[in-house]
């Protein structure tokens, strides 16, 4: 038998408002005393980027977009699974996540493109596969 709590499971529709609501729900679940010693800020940053990326790209223009999120607390990390019924990743590959250069003139500063670079900096063991019209992304976030 293990003492680890059961995984957190949240389902949402593919809109930025639903992503916000899901992250607020996640944070409230993680405010329980049994999670008091665990860093949840990094997990929230990673999930914000992953979920918004799904909404903006995989589910762009879709009204029937569904996302299922599972966060399972392991020994020293969160095992995260994000599934969605949107379009596949381009070329069936994860985004490279190269961080935009910010050492440039103010007028040229990038206003986007940071999402997947943050995911790559904060998460590890990132895997993607496509099956039966669903994307599955798995990753780990230290806690």
């Amino acid at each position: 038998m293990t003492n680890s709590p059961s995984p957190i499971h949240i389902e949402l529709e593919g809109t930025p408002q639903e992503v916000r609501a899901a992250l607020i729900r996640l944070r409230s679940k993680l405010s329980l005393p049994r999670f008091a010693h665990i860093d949840v800020g990094t997990l929230e940053i990673v999930l914000g980027e992953v979920l918004n990326n799904v909404v903006e790209h995989a589910l762009a223009g879709r009204k029937d977009g569904r996302i299922a999120l599972t966060c399972d607390l392991g020994e020293n990390c969160w095992n995260v699974l994000v599934r969605d019924n949107g379009a596949p990743m381009p070329d069936n590959n994860l985004p490279s996540g190269i961080a935009p250069d910010v050492s440039i003139a103010m007028a040229d500063l990038p206003e986007g493109g940071f999402g997947w670079s943050l995911v790559r900096m904060l998460a590890h063991d990132i895997h993607y596969h496509r099956n039966n019209g669903w994307n599955t992304l798995s990753l780990r976030v230290d806690c």
Binding site: P16, L23, E44, G48, N52, M106, F114
Partner: peptide
């Protein structure tokens, strides 16, 4: 207590729209 990359981009945009 939370900002994502879109929020970050919006802060950058707010600075840029102020001009130099």
């Amino acid at each position: 207590d939370f900002i994502d990359s879109s929020g970050l981009g919006a802060i950058v945009a707010a600075m840029k729209q102020l001009g130099t």
